[in-house]
Design a protein around this nucleic acid. Sequence first.
DNA 1: ACCATTCAGTTTATTTTCTGGACTGACTAT
DNA 2: ATAGTCAGTCCAGAAAATAAACTGAATGGT
Lengths: 150, 150
Amino acid sequence: MKWDDLADQPCSVARTVAVIGDRWTLMILRDCFLGIRRFEDFQARLGISRTITAERLKALVDEGVLKKVPYQDRPLRHEYRLTDKGLDLYPVMMAVVNFGDRHYAGEAGPPLLHRHRTCGCDFQPVITCSACHEPLAAREVETRAGPGAV
Amino acid sequence: MKWDDLADQPCSVARTVAVIGDRWTLMILRDCFLGIRRFEDFQARLGISRTITAERLKALVDEGVLKKVPYQDRPLRHEYRLTDKGLDLYPVMMAVVNFGDRHYAGEAGPPLLHRHRTCGCDFQPVITCSACHEPLAAREVETRAGPGAV
DNA sequence: ACCATTCAGTTTATTTTCTGGACTGACTAT
DNA sequence: ATAGTCAGTCCAGAAAATAAACTGAATGGT
């Protein structure tokens, strides 16, 4: 299978992975959620080739995950910001962070802490059921074909 | 930067992405959560080269996300199962699925439904704050250096 | 005994992608 | 005039992915 064919599968994972399922794309998104906006900053922080930085940013813009917003004229320059669709990736990011914190944090603890402004506490993300609001475990879930199945 | 250098960064996203941040690895994990266990089944479902299937499965085993369990002798054959560490990736998967359902489901609706056995309802995953149990929004969160920072 | 089939890979040659480094172009600051 | 900033593009070589064939251990049929 080719990478682009993923987007055509009747699977929400495949369709999403076709967009964000790439090491550098995920790292770019991490930086976006940390407030990075400019090409040179992505480039410097990631330490990857400029070609890939440019290509991945363009792909994310084409997908509607990021948008280019001008921040100066003469010379005209743009910065990259998360769209509402991009912000919807926050749960994915937090789930990834949480996994890293659990399994790869050193003895010192996690490299970053997250504070919930609303309640003022440092937190871990907890995934819950939209129906009963209880935390979800993989083994408690049954999957079956939905309306959009082939 | 090289791919392997990611794992050495003081960042939980980078460390996790070093393990799962690859299109085919994510697709393999999707299948694991759907109950696929055997090499030939992964291979057939994904339609990717056998080389990559073998290499990715091996990497996931080396990382402790999957384990090889013999299911017959003569000839000795193994199947791949999620470890407890692998099951910890469930929130990541569900977050990815949820994003796909929101943004890439056709008019018919999502291709798969998830039912919470505990409460009996179809659900969407909701990410909440471990402290106040309210749903989390990206804009309500502040990030700062934690104990494991450089 | 012989041949086909299953399963889990490995090998190989070719195609695709990624990399580092140099370069472009519009402008500002000294 | 010269250097510097920013956002890229271009290029040749290196690395990774691909399809397709092959290996090897065993079973099942005739």
